[in-house]
């Protein structure tokens, strides 16, 4: 074999993997990278999109956003909404998963519960929003039940009063999102060997000790992964909030996503909207890097 032939062979071998990857690289580039880079570039332009010859704006739009108290309120609401959602998704998901995994509950009842618990997952965000709008209407079912029980004295405008709106949307989102945790944790629970619990029984562990010493440590990888993913996803929740409250009343449920949407499609200030979107991107990116590092570490 000549040297030339051999080097050509080697070249082929080096290039081949990239050739195989190229279709997906091109698609990722077109569908993900290009829009992302475009949005980033918009955030540094004056009158992005709306003018054909946009001028360079530097950090102007970022300064404008950071100077806007509504932005900071949105950021705070986003954090509250996200943290509460993730914590309760996890807690409720865990409780339900433990129930569904328990031998002490009658199997028929367990199957019925399994279907009931998973229901919120079957609905799209829009339907969930509509359901909760109807339920939490001032004249809706929730108020009427609470009044019958004597828990509240007058009708509460859950979504329409600034004091309750953020809690109400957070509640709706908690309801909508726990099945992800439930299903993942249930799968995890079913993967924990029964021996662990039997060994603990013999060693004298009480119910809560089995939970803290075995179940939770065993589920930790799932809990961390799903929490991080949930955090990233919940931060970007838009349809649910948009349809239930539209960020109102006043600005009480304005989150980064609705804030950005309004800048873009109500004010047509696409430059500032892009800047706001970049801020969301950076926060998500931070979390994603954390997630990737965690995944690698495992």
């Amino acid at each position: 074999m000549t040297r030339q032939k051999r080097s050509r062979h080697r070249l082929k071998r080096t290039v081949a993997p990239y050739l195989y990857l190229s279709p997906s690289l091109v698609i990722i580039g077109l569908l993900m990278l290009l829009p992302m880079v475009t949005v980033i570039s918009y955030s540094f332009q004056n009158s992005a999109v709306l003018r054909r010859d946009p001028s360079f704006a530097g950090l102007k739009h970022y300064q404008a956003i950071f100077a806007d108290p509504v932005f900071w309120a949105s950021l705070w609401h986003t954090l509250y909404f996200t943290c509460m959602s993730v914590v309760f998704h996890m807690t409720i998901g865990m409780i339900f998963a433990l129930m569904l995994n328990s031998d002490r509950i009658n199997p028929t009842l367990r199957n019925i519960l399994r279907v009931l618990y998973i229901l919120p997952w079957l609905f799209t965000a829009v339907i969930i929003a509509v359901i909760w709008r109807l339920l939490l209407e001032p004249n809706g079912v929730v108020n009427s039940i609470l009044m019958q029980l004597g828990l509240i004295g007058s009708k509460i405008e859950w979504f329409s009063s600034p004091e309750t709106a953020l809690h109400a949307v957070t509640f709706a989102n908690i309801w909508a999102g726990y099945p992800l945790f439930m299903v993942s944790l249930l799968a995890g629970l079913q993967g924990i060997p029964k021996d662990f619990y039997e060994a603990a029984d013999i060693d004298g562990a009480k119910g809560y000790q089995k939970l803290t010493f075995i179940t939770i440590p065993q589920l930790m990888p799932i809990i961390i992964s799903i929490s991080l993913l949930d955090f990233i996803w919940t931060m970007q929740v838009f349809p649910l909030i948009w349809i239930t409250t539209g960020g109102g009343p006043i600005y009480s449920t304005e989150v980064l996503s609705t804030y950005t949407y309004k800048l873009a499609f109500s004010s047509y200030n696409l430059s500032q909207a892009s800047a706001s979107a970049v801020v969301i991107l950076l926060i998500s990116l931070g979390l994603t890097l954390f997630y990737i590092r965690y995944q690698k570490a495992r």
Partner: peptide, 21 residues
Amino acid sequence: MPPKDRDIAMVFQSYALYPHM
């Protein structure tokens, strides 16, 4: 009696060692 009160110790086929400990 529950297992813990029987004053016995058991070695499992799978050993049942806790991987996180």
